[in-house]
């Protein structure tokens, strides 16, 4: 299983009920395939950066899911078919998350080493001044 984010834009005239209907449909696709939904976030109506099919605004919805390629494929197909949806994007996030965890772990370990070291008091401000001077 991999983590994905699916974001789609529905047209500005889409009502709340229609949005919910799309959401439950996508939810159904994901859960039916054995995936998990971490988060559904309605980001609300936003101005688009450029015109899409004569639309200047759109409702943004973000899905954070854990799924496999088949599920994503099916979800994308569904989104493509729906008239209300004017644009969608799927991003794989698990690789980035892993990288981020690695950096965080590295930083914590370094902080711990510094904390136990003798020159811990001197190291921190020195580091700061070097960065400020750059």
């Amino acid at each position: 299983m991999r983590n994905y984010e699916i974001m789609f834009i529905a047209g500005p005239n889409t009502t709340d009920e229609e949005l919910d209907k799309i959401n439950t449909q996508i939810e159904g696709v994901v859960t039916a395939g054995g995936g998990q939904i971490t988060k559904i976030e309605k980001m609300g109506k936003r101005r688009l950066a450029y015109e899409i099919n004569r639309n200047r605004e759109g409702h943004y919805v973000l899905f954070v899911i854990s799924a496999n390629g088949e599920i994503v494929k099916e979800a994308e197909r569904r989104l493509r078919v729906m008239d209300a949806v004017i644009k969608y994007i799927t991003v794989r996030t698990d690789e980035d998350e892993r990288r981020f965890d690695k950096i965080k772990g590295f930083r914590q370990r370094r902080a711990a080493r510094r904390g136990s070291g003798a020159r811990s008091a001197a190291a921190e401000p020195l580091d700061q001044s070097v960065e400020d001077g750059m």
Binding site: I9, A49, Y50, K87, I89, V91
Partner: peptide, 12 residues
């Protein structure tokens, strides 16, 4: 580039 794709940022 991703943000451009989903109309969060403009291409031009």
């Amino acid at each position: 580039k991703m943000a451009r794709n989903i109309a969060l940022l403009p291409f031009t």
